[in-house]
């Protein structure tokens, strides 16, 4: 073993990274070699001085200050998860209140479904087919009155509604009167609400 090897091994010995035979070899080299003994001593000193340097007590009140900071930090902070949950709860509550309200208002208003709905004029609860106009296709009317001054070519279904035929008006096709059950009304209202939501989300369609 030469001094170069011995010095590398001195470092390994400091980190308990040396096998037992290697340690013995190093020891016998050290006994014979003065310079390497010096190296060993000074390395030992570096390490023990460094241990001393790592003894610097923290200032008094360290823990108390820290715990105070923690308490200040903790109070206003609501976790992101909790905030998300709160937002969901509010949204659900809104939906629960708003949707029956919407259903109720829809059901209390007259409604008209027609292929040619642009032609038809609404005045209060009256739907008027103006004189001279021709409406083609099927018509469904919920509540209110359908007043035909022009012409209607197609089937008319009335749900809680009446048809008034003006002297010059004409209706070609059949008419059905339906008494709506509450469930059916509700189903219609829900369908209407769904259409509105789709319209809101999907833009103009």
């Amino acid at each position: 073993m030469n001094c170069h090897d011995a010095r590398r091994m001195l470092h390994q010995a400091l980190d308990n990274d040396l096998s037992l035979p290697a340690k013995r070899q190093l020891e016998s080299h050290l006994q014979a070699c003065g310079p390497c003994q010096k190296v060993e001593r000074s390395l030992g000193q570096v390490v023990s001085l460094l241990e001393q340097l790592s003894n610097v007590p923290a200032p008094a009140g360290f823990t108390a200050d820290l715990m105070q900071k923690l308490q200040q930090q903790q109070r206003p902070s609501i976790s992101r998860f909790t905030r998300l949950r709160m937002a969901c709860a509010v949204a659900l509550l809104c939906l629960l209140i708003v949707s029956p309200l919407y259903v109720w208002t829809t059901l209390s208003q007259p409604q008209l479904i027609a292929d040619d709905w642009q032609v038809i004029v609404q005045e209060g609860n009256r739907f008027i087919v103006p004189a001279g106009e021709v409406v083609r296709g099927d018509l469904v009317i919920y509540r209110g009155v359908l007043e035909i001054r022009g012409e209607v070519h197609g089937t008319i279904k009335t749900v809680d509604a009446t048809i008034e035929l003006a002297p010059n008006g004409r209706h070609v096709g059949s008419a059905h009167s339906i008494i709506a059950s509450p469930q059916a009304k509700l189903a219609v209202a829900w369908a209407e609400l769904w259409e509105r939501i789709k319209h809101l989300l999907g833009g103009n369609d």
């Binding site: 340097l53 790592s54 003894n55 610097v56 007590p57 923290a58 360290f62 823990t63 715990m67 923690l70």
Partner: peptide
């Protein structure tokens, strides 16, 4: 448990402070 956390801080504050100081 805040007191358990404070105990941990007490245990390591000097070492961590000394390390950061160096």
């Amino acid at each position: 448990d805040h007191s358990a956390f404070a105990e941990l801080v007490d245990k390591y504050r000097d070492k961590i402070y000394a390390y950061l100081y160096r």
